[in-house]
Amino acid sequence: MKKNTLVMLGGFIIAGAIVFLLMAATPGSSGIELTMKQLLATQGQHKDDFVTVEGLLIEKSIKWNPDKIQLKFDVKDNDGNIMHVVHNGIKPDNFSEGVITILQGSPTTKDTFKAETVKTRCPSKYEGKDMKDYDPKKHEKLLNQPPHEK
């Protein structure tokens, strides 16, 4: 019986170690998830935080600098708030008007979000896509056009 208890005790120590590991790792690697509205309202408070925020992409605003590999674009939410985003990286694959972008990074300056990662989530990733704005010419145009329009 004694050994049994001791083994159990050892088990608790391991379990305790894992819980400790969890507690220790949580603060350092956590960030917060805000809606754009919240973020814009409380930007100052979150300067040092790692923030996840979602917004709808405004396609016209995309500026792509191939030499610096820097991507600038704006996102909006459904209330019409607009936020500028800077990302030192490339364009994700389905980067088109209205796509939901998941941004992670820090809101360094007013209205500008410095994104470390930019991911996209098509609002209908598994639900097909609307055909009404499909334009067969678009592919051609896309090919012959530089991604930065302005």
């Binding site: 894992i18 590991l21 969890l22 790792a25 949580t26 350092g28 690697s29 956590s30 960030g31 917060i32 998830e33 805000l34 790692f50 996840t52 992670q104």
Partner: peptide
């Protein structure tokens, strides 16, 4: 009241030793 996210670093830090 705030959604606190833990990202890849959290999982890597915790899962790797385990």
């Amino acid at each position: 009241g705030t959604k606190v996210t833990v990202g890849t670093p959290f999982f890597n830090k915790v899962e790797a030793p385990i």
